[in-house]
Structures are given as C-alpha cells and as structure tokens.
Design a binder for these strands. Structure first.
Length: 802
RNA sequence: GCCCGGGUGGCGGAAUUGGUAGACGCGCAGGACUUAAAAUCCUGUUUCAGCAAUGAAGUGUGGGUUCGAUUCCCGCCCCGGGCACCA
C-alpha cells in the first residue's frame, strides 16, 4: 500500500474538478432544491491569504459540501469587495494604480483560494470595483434618491489641519494624524446620507430569522429604541429673538428638578445664545470638543467639562429660568442634541452640576430618603417638589406631565432611536462615483439610469486633496458634464460611495452576475434568494448586517424583491488571533497558511483549523497540534486501503451508526471540532476491531465535506465513478444509536461513590438495590439514615443520608 | 465608559432542559521495533496523599439556590470583539 501523498492527490483532484466543471451550478434547470451558501467576501488588499481566511472559508465550504451531499443544489459563490481604503493604501505604497493592482490581486487571491479546495463557482463571481458591478451600485443609489431616502446634509469629518485632508478613523491614532502626527480636528462638509433612521422600526423586527441571539441583541441596542417626550423650552437669543430649544427625555417625570440645560457644542442654536461676554470661552470650548472622539465624550468616568452661554431658558412646567450651558457629554446625533439637566436624578448631570456648582433639587422620593449629597437617584419613585404632580408615581407622571404640557403645545410623546442615518460620502478616489450632477440652473440632478455607469476615470494622482475634496474634483474631464435635465454645463458630484454600499447588496448579484440590462432578474431572485446560510465575522454584527438588511428592505418596498430579509440563517466564525492580538500587517503577526499547506496538504490544514476549537469561538493560532491531524489522515488512509473485515462486529456496527448521526448533526450545527474527534474515535476502534468495505465507503463519505481530496482519492480507489460529493450522505438507524446498558454513577450526598452497569429501562426499586449492593456505596450507607433515594433513569442514582 | 461574548489539566479543547468533569488531539513519561535514529505501535498522564484500594481538592474569583452546579442567580477580577470613514 502506497503512502498517502497529499500534494499529489490534491492537485490531481483540484485539476479534475475544474476540468469537469464539477462546481459549476446550474441555476435554472436543476430539479434539486436550492441552497444558497454564502460567506462574507474578502477585500483584495495585495496581501496573501492568512490563516484567518482559511479559518473562515474552509469550514463554511465543508458546510456547503455537506448540503450538496444531502441532495441540495448548492450555490457557493465568492467575490471581492475591492473598493475602499485597503486597495488605495496598497496603491499608494506600491505606486501601482488600483485599476491594475485589483485585477492582479484578485487573480492572485483566486489562485490561492483554489488551493483550499472549495466548491466556489467562479463563474458567478463579482468584483465590486468593476463598472459592470458598480453601475448597479449607482443604480441602487438612484432608487433611494428617487424615494427621498438619499439626501445631502452637513456632517463632520476627521480633518488634519496640517495635511489639509479628510482622514478615515483608521488614519487617526490617539487623536493625531498617522502621517504627520498633528492633532486631528473636525470639519463640517456637505455629504450624502441614506435615511437609515426611517427603517429603524422595521429593522427591529427579527421575526423568522435564524440568527445568533447575541447578534440580535447587539442590533437592538445599536438601533436603541426608547420612548419618552420632547419638551419645548422657550429662550431668548442674543438678538432678543424668541427661540425654542427642544429637548428629548425619557424622564419627563423629573422635569421639576431641571436646574439647567445643556446643548451639544455642535448644536445650531449655540451661536444664537452665546452672549458677547461668553463668546471667547464658548469658541475655545467648541474648538476643544472637535478634538475629542465620541467614545471619549460619552464615557461616564471622564471628567465632565462645559461652558455657560450667558443665556437662560424657561422651564415650561413651572416657568423657572434655567441657565443654558454647552457640554461635550451631550452628543448632537442623539435625540435633539439638547438635554434638560436634572442633577439629582441623572449621574452625568450630577457630576457636571457638582463641578460647576449648579443647584440641585430632589423631585423623586425613594424609600431610603435619598439626599442631595448621595449622588443621583436614577430609579423611578414618587414625585415630590413637583407642584400638582406631587405624590404621583414616575410612570404616571411621565404620562400626565407630557399630556399637561401638550395642551400648552410645549411637549409631545416621542419615540427615539440611537440609530443614525448612514453617511455614505467619501472624499476619496477609489470608490463608486455618486451619480449626481450639480447644475447651476437646475440644481442637484440625478444621472439618468440609461447613462450609468458614471465611470471612475483612470487618473494618476489619487492622493487625497488639500481642500477636503475628493481627488476626482481636479479631473476636469470627469467633473465637467452636461445637465441631464437642461443640457447646460454642469459639474459632477466628486465624492464616492462608502464601500458598505457596495457590500449591502452583493448577495443579490451573484446569481445574476452576467446580467447587463438590470441588476437582478425577478425569476432568479425568486428561485435563489434569500441567502440560506450566511457566514462571517461578528465584527459585522451592527454595520454591514444592518446596512444589508436596510437595502434589502428598501428593495422590497420598491417592489424589486419579494422577501424582506436577505439572510435566513446567520453564523459568525470566531477570530483567529496571534499572541492574543488580531492579525494585522501593522502588528506584523500575520501567519501564512502556505508552509503548512505545503507540508501537510490542504485537507490536513483545514481539518486542523476545524479541530482547533469551536468554529464560533476562534482562538489563538499555534501549530502545535497539526501533527495529530496529519497522523489521523495517515491512519485513515491506511485503514481504508488496508485489509477489510468480512463483516463488522456488533460494537463497530453500533459505533458506525452513532458516527453517522454525530457527524451529520455536528456539521449542521458547525461543531466541526467534535465531528473530527468522533471520526478519530471511530478510526481508532476500527483499527483495533477491523471494519468491512461497505463501512469504509460510509466512512469516506462522512469525511468528504472536511477532507474532500482525501475522500475523492479513497472513493476512486473503491472503483466508484464520479465524485464523492454527488454520493448521497449516509443514513443511520436510530435504534442502532442508543445503548440499552449504561454505566450510572451512584452518589451519596452528592459525591460519587461508585458506578454500576444497568439496563436503561430498569425500574427504581431494582436500580436502588443494585446501587446499594456496590461495596463502596454500601460503606457510605452504614450507620446513617437514608432520607431520600434519587433515581433519574440513564443519568444518576443518589442517596441523601443523615 | 457603553453594548456583546468568553475564562475548564502543561496546551487546544469535550461535557450544559442541573446528574460519574477532563472525550478527541498535542505535549510529556515509560516500553516495543531498530546497530542507531526517524517513523510507527503499546501503556500511563487534573493536582495532592497512597504500593494499591481509596480519599481530599478541583471548571477565573467570592457568595447563594439544590440531594447534586462547568451548567441557574447575585457581586467582583481578567481577556476578546464592536462603538458609526478599516472592512
């Protein structure tokens, strides 16, 4: 018997698969039930694949292979998310233009990906930076624009005053520019947004989704629904104008305790309320606030800072005059960007009031007689010092005070969401151009659908510009155009789109990747979507996965698709770290799979990744145990190709039925580690006891999803025709998987004192007697009183003694 | 800081509608084969005490519920992911 030569066998089968088109899926005519098995697509950064890619793709592929053996027509595509910063950074570093490098890098990645031995159907691939794809990303933008879901608004960006350029968060390190180290500030730019907030309520409905509970919780928290009231405070501006400040609160029951009010530094009314004397302080404070991140600003431990505007507002419930302050702990995105401050019943307000010596007034009583010095009491209670509302519960008061003020048009009930609109403008070159034209006469005009795509010009200098504009703005041929409406001279929008827009709809395109006249075909959508299984990292729980759901819902509401949710089942793989840290080039801890694949083969490497631990957990990379898998593959090969037994022993027979059940269930729940362990256990047993050829064939099928090349080679060795992937998944007999005789532990006062072998169906009386007969158990039952006898069939026998 | 996970032998991990903790693998120790080594095979391997039978302790930590807790509840510590321009 020849030794197993992994690299020879693997390249042989990879070639065969490709030549026979084994993995190309017939999208239209197959009679089998469809299964759309999807992994989140990678971005081609110019780096080679690292073990993290394999960790994600190999098990996901094993799942797809399993589904195919179960009889499904499996679509398993892969594409490339090729717009965005990684490609731009690579281009800046190497001097190779992204137009070129993307093609190179994609081809290189495909070559590397093929070595995994996945069943990707490369005929259905997409590359988001190609005009054939981004034409439809632009089309998508236009659909949202038509519906009023795309709009322009001023919003802050990270700004390096020294480079005079917009920075991505990634380019900001500890508040400084990662190129020149100058302090980063913020700057307001007019930018395109999608009205994500309009879908907040719809996005909260997870009905029918087979998603991890934690992901749903994270999305719910991210959307952050709260119910409360909006209250209007009247105030006098510096010009003597009467202005309304609207605040949002979930605690209107504490309104009588409001002793001051706070605006976010970016609040548009700030200049109106800032008195001449306070101008200097306020200006300084706003400048400082621009340098602090939102995470720091919302931190509850950071010392609160703020500044008085010099103006006052009137509390509508009692006519009291309260000072208007500015503080960075109030965020302009959330609520109305203004809060009524109740220091006695809000932690942050308390800290702030203490620091600036603002008055306190307790308006909610609790049982413990909470005092002013005890900090804020944030729970509900009974109202005091609240005029006619005294004695009311917080809950009632929230209703009554809002209703009372509503009559005076000073308050309304309001549901609020933390979810912000989606800012999609990027002042960068390497992205899909936003299909909008600015005409002096007609204003903002969308590009006509027939004129799509708005092609990204091949300009040579794509480094960011020093005026905060996209590099496209100096490309005259691109910028100057005709107005689609009046035909007069006009200028194109030069911002490009966030790559999350590209990735928010790619799953709709795979089955339609060759369609030239529309983004997707209705019949095809009906047949293939939604995605049955979506696998990707948990870091996408909130952003990508909310954006994709949003876009899909919009497509649904516009009648393009008839399903509301794009991903029926979702699973996150864990992250592979190296020495406890996320693998990244900058940390220099990227591990390449190549040498391991070279040495042990793809099957061993992918099984090792699966065996390392639970797929959902990830883990810290080390290669310590890989020899174990290598030995196992060798043993498996020897077993299959060695002498077969005439027939299986009873023990082997039962073990095989159990194994079929276990491996199938484990793959279905993505517990590959225990599936591999079970295979090992069986092989160990079969080595000892011998196994017949029919059973060996079953074994080969069972390992096929996890070690496809090995399985093909063995399958061929049996003289079978065709691929093992088209062999049906083995069936088992449930009766053969249950043991009638079990070993039961016997406990005395919760401590195990022995075990007995017993029929599962034994009645309580017999079982207890058998347990008492165990000499070691008997020892512990001497000279004591048994107060309770416990028998849980198949689980435990216990005695409680005194 | 906020939100979401996680913490089990020397190591990766297994076992949860509460029922014999440590499957499987790595490593290590001893043995077989070999002139020798590698490879392979066999035996042992949570810690402590004991020749053993067995006993005690033990799933980050401190409490609680229970005949019985890795599993459920409360407090604390540590690690990871996300926090809206990396994707």
């Amino acid at each position: 018997m020849a030794q197993y030569n992994a690299s020879e066998v693997e390249s042989k089968w990879q070639k065969k698969w490709e030549e026979s088109g084994l993995h190309s899926v017939d999208l239209k005519n197959s009679k089998k039930e469809k299964f759309y098995n999807l992994v989140m697509f990678p971005y081609p950064s110019g780096d080679k694949l690292h073990v993290g890619h394999w960790y994600n793709y190999a098990p996901a592929d094993s799942y797809g292979r399993y589904m195919r053996m179960k009889g499904y027509n499996v679509l398993e595509p892969l594409g490339f998310d090729s717009f965005g910063l990684p490609a731009e950074n690579y281009a800046i570093k190497t001097g190779v233009h992204p137009h070129q490098s993307i093609t190179q890098n994609v081809n290189q990645m495909i070559t590397q990906l093929k070595r995994i031995g996945t069943i990707y159907d490369w005929d259905k691939t997409i590359v988001t930076s190609t005009p054939e794809y981004y034409k439809w990303t632009q089309w998508l933008f236009l659909q949202l624009y038509k519906k009023g879901l795309a709009f322009k608004k001023f919003a802050p960006v990270n700004w390096c005053p020294s480079c005079k350029t917009v920075l991505a968060n990634e380019q900001v390190q500890d508040g400084t520019c990662d190129r020149c180290k100058s302090e980063v500030t913020k700057r307001d730019l007019a930018q395109w947004m999608f009205k994500l907030s309009a879908y907040a309520e719809k996005l909260l409905d997870f009905e029918g989704l087979d998603w991890p509970e934690k992901t749903i919780t994270m999305q719910k928290n991210w959307i952050g629904k709260s119910t409360g009231s909006e209250i209007t405070f009247k105030a006098e501006g510096i010009e003597g104008s009467e202005e309304n400040i609207i605040v949002y609160t979930t605690r209107i029951d504490t309104l009588f305790g409001c002793t001051y009010m706070v605006l976010a530094p970016e609040h548009p009314l700030v200049p109106i309320f800032t008195t001449t004397e306070q101008k200097k302080n306020v200006k300084q404070y706003i400048e400082k606030a621009k340098k602090i991140t939102d995470i720091e600003r919302s931190s509850e431990v950071r010392e609160k800072t703020g500044v008085f505007t010099g103006s006052y507002a009137i509390n509508p419930v009692n006519g009291e005059k309260v000072p208007i302050w500015i503080a960075d702990y109030v965020l302009v995105y959330y609520g109305t960007g203004a809060v009524m401050a109740v220091p006695t019943h809000d932690e942050r307000d308390y800290a702030f009031a203490k620091k600036y010596d603002l008055p306190l007034r307790i308006v909610i009583a609790d049982k413990k007689q909470h005092g002013e010095k005890d900090g804020a009491y944030c729970e509900d209670g009974v109202l005091i010092n609240s005029g006619t509302f005294d004695g009311m519960s917080s809950e009632d008061a929230r209703l009554k005070i809002t209703e009372f003020l509503a009559e005076k048009k000073a308050a309304t009930f309001r549901t609020n969401y933390r979810l912000r609109d989606w800012l999609l403008s990027r002042q960068r070159y390497w992205g899909a151009p936003i299909p909008i034209v600015n005409c002096k006469k007609c204003g903002e005009v969308p590009v006509l659908e027939k004129d799509l795509p708005v092609e990204l010009p091949n300009i040579s200098d794509f480094t960011p510009l020093d005026d905060g504009k996209s590099p496209l703005s100096k490309c005259e041929e691109f910028k100057n155009c005709k107005c689609p409406k009046c035909g007069g001279p006009a200028e194109r929008e030069t911002d490009t789109m966030d790559t999350f827009v590209c990735s928010s709809w790619y799953y709709l395109r795979y089955p339609n990747n060759k369609l030239a006249d529309k983004p997707f075909d209705k019949a095809m959508m009906k047949k293939w979507l939604p995605v049955d299984m979506y696998i990707g990292g948990p870091e996408h729980a909130c952003m990508h996965l909310i954006y994709a759901r949003f876009i899909n819902m919009v497509m649904h509401d516009l009648g393009f698709v008839d399903f509301k949710e794009p991903f029926k089942k979702l699973v996150h793989q864990g992250m592979i770290t190296k020495d406890g840290a996320k693998m990244s080039k900058s940390k220099g801890n990227v591990v390449s799979p190549d040498e391991f694949v070279e040495k042990y083969g793809s099957d061993v490497f992918r099984m090792y990744l699966m065996f390392m631990g639970p797929f959902q957990d990830g883990g810290d990379w080390n290669d310590k145990g890989i020899t174990g898998i290598s030995r196992f593959v060798e043993r498996f090969w020897n077993l299959v190709n060695g002498k077969s037994a005439e027939k299986d022993s009873e023990a082997v027979k039962k073990a095989l039925h159990k194994l079929i059940k276990k491996v199938g269930e484990d793959i279905e729940t993505l517990h590959f580690n225990t599936a591999v362990a079970a295979m090992m256990e069986f092989v160990n047993l079969a080595m000892k006891e011998g196994v017949c050829e029919e059973s060996k064939k079953i074994l080969v099928k069972l390992i096929a999803p996890m070690a496809p090349h090995l399985a093909e080679e063995c399958f061929e060795g049996f003289g079978e025709k065709g691929s093992v992937i088209d062999a049906p998944w083995p069936k088992y007999d449930e009766k053969m998987t249950v043991d009638n005789v079990v070993r039961l532990g016997v406990q005395v006062n919760g401590k195990v004192r022995g075990d007995i072998e017993i029929e599962k169906t034994t009645d309580q009386k017999t079982a207890i007697e058998m347990a008492k007969a165990n000499p070691n158990v008997a020892k512990y039952l001497e000279n004591v009183t048994v107060v309770k006898e416990i028998y849980v069939p198949g689980k435990i026998i216990g005695f409680v003694v005194k």
